[in-house]
Design a protein around this nucleic acid. Structure first.
Lengths: 335, 335
DNA sequence: GATAAGGGCGAGAGCGCTCTCACGGGAAGC
DNA sequence: GCTTCCCGTGAGAGCGCTCTCGCCCTTATC
């Protein structure tokens, strides 16, 4: 049937060679040469042959797929739509995968469905999985079932991870505000379930203690609304605050809005510093000073480790957070 | 070997049934019943059996995978990291795919590599492909090679599409500004290569003509920087403008910043209206009035069509853009 | 000139699963 | 009590590919 897609057998027949030789040529493997190579290539071109991924995966036992897994609190995929952070993860992986002809599969799970779904996923991991958001317990469980996995957030010690220096970043952020002469520095932290948020909290507390600052803080979800409301609360309780350290840019954008709405000028009256350097930081007005996380680099490093085939348990690389100064802390820098 | 993963044969042996029956139970297919069902399920649980996706895909001839394809101008994946729009596409598809146990594969292509890569992809499309960003030519080519495809942007007429009413939305946006009493309305359009941008331009021009407005506009890339610079240019040439229609929120966030930097108050001096209702719109300060596109719904509708199995060429559904009023056009609404 | 060594090539056995088909036994119909 | 039908079950043939073998022909070695 000319209707159905050509298979490698068709190619072999047309080229007048065996299926094995056709396979060798198609995969650029040694052991076939000269005129046969050309004949096979011609046949491929003539038939418009494209290898079937599924068959290739089954026969070789190692499909070329990297899975990205995020466990979020709410709707499956809710995070992807609202938090620009995750886009950077995918963006960082893409060029590398492109290079080796691997594919990217995205899985968004809710906490309820996570346990079962993760087992299912673990059984079908091929090149490897990247955990972009997950709790330590679930990560450890996943790692127990599948070794080819790298986490992008701090988790159990055994799980290989490419993690940002959240503690150091938060510490540096608070220190920066202090250096600018701010003394009544409040903090808005993320949800406790997030290990990133927990680390940023630690960094903040450490800095506050060392600098002798009062520990003024509020908790919020990693959303703009969360930041907005937390800032309102903070403003009520501490109307004289002169700086806010916010654990995520999305929240920080809300904080700036709340401050403006509350009659404060940013940065003149109150300095704001965010975290992540996501699109929310540059879209805020004024643009946010923030701690840039090399998310793309971390994601790329995770993929590189997975592609290397050797993912030692406990392997951990720490990526520094870098201060990006924009206008929300008083710099004249303009985008 | 207890080392290697259990197969369906192992399950069948342990359960004391045939492979066929095991398959029936595992897939919830009719034709197996009573005690056998239980025995198979017990065996599955005991062995920790998980079906192999690749084998399943090969044998059934229809792997459960939906591909999302975007062709961007720059780096592979660059768009994903910088434009929150695409996250919404993925988020919209996720719940539906979850429901049917299908997977989501993401492909980010550059214009150079697109042609060849698209052919490759078209040959391996299974449940279907969603084109989230592509030129009409490439879309038509893809559709010629693979019918199971839906575009989320306006393309060639033959390609099935779930598209937003970009023309009507832009028209409504400009009309809204006019209704607020604004008369010196400028526009910032997106790149010509984007059909969405082209349609929004048409809508703007149509409204400008009907309302008797001067056609003041600038072009920019769909980025915050692009919006910022275009606004600066516009402000130089037309310092008296009192409103700006911007073809995308990301640009609009930059526009607000440029206006603020140029000493204009938003919304008092200049009204700004964006497009998309992305995270950039709510992060901007003041939050942006914008034309909300039901991106998630469009993406979901695309998936639903693909899952239905019947994707008639030329099929097209138009999704209305909805005005979301926030502060950048003077409303007192606060997030 | 005989034997060893090497490399190109094809035959064929799976990879783990789905699905068709044929079989057999119990219920229904006469 | 015999035929007919139906439904639960198992045997087995692939799905399209990779990869191991072993064959055979060529080249190197003594």
């Amino acid at each position: 049937m000319s209707r159905s897609k050509p298979t490698i057998d068709d190619v072999a027949r047309v080229a007048g060679v065996s299926r094995a030789t056709a396979s060798r040529v198609i995969n650029n493997a040694p052991g076939a040469s000269g005129p046969l190579r050309v004949r096979v290539q011609e046949a491929v071109a003539r038939l418009g042959y494209r290898p079937n991924e599924a068959a290739r995966a089954l026969a070789s036992g190692r499909p070329r797929v990297v899975d990205v897994i995020a466990v979020s609190c709410d709707l499956p995929g809710g995070w992807l739509g609202s938090n620009p952070y995750y886009g950077r993860v995918l963006a960082g992986m893409m060029p590398l995968l492109e290079g080796v002809g691997a594919q990217l599969r995205v899985h968004a799970l809710t906490h309820e469905s996570a346990a079962g779904a993760l087992d299912e996923l673990a059984a079908n991991v091929t090149l490897g999985a990247v955990l972009s958001d997950i709790t330590p317990t679930l990560a450890a469980r996943f790692h127990r079932r599948c070794r080819r996995v790298v986490s992008l957030v701090p988790t159990a010690a055994t799980v290989p991870a490419m993690v940002a220096d959240n503690i150091g970043g938060a510490y540096a952020a608070v220190t920066h505000l202090h250096r600018l002469g701010r003394r009544r520095i409040a903090a808005i932290h993320g949800p406790l379930i997030s290990t990133c948020a927990a680390d940023r909290r630690i960094g903040h507390l450490r800095a506050a203690q060392q600098l002798g600052l009062a520990e003024v803080s509020a908790d919020a979800a990693f959303t703009r609304e969360g930041g907005y409301r937390a800032a309102q609360r903070l403003l009520e309780q501490h109307p004289d605050l002169d700086a806010v350290f916010v654990a995520c840019d999305l929240m920080a954008a809300g904080v700036v809005q709340a401050l403006t709405a509350g009659g404060r000028r940013v940065p003149e009256d109150v300095n704001v510093i965010g975290f992540d350097d996501s699109v929310a930081a540059v879209c805020a007005n004024p643009p946010l000073t923030t701690m840039r996380l090399p998310v793309e680099e971390m994601a790329a490093a995770a993929v590189r480790l997975l592609l290397s085939g050797d993912v030692p348990p406990g392997h951990r690389e720490l990526f520094p957070a870098e201060l990006v100064v924009r206008q929300s802390t008083g710099s004249p820098t303009v985008g």
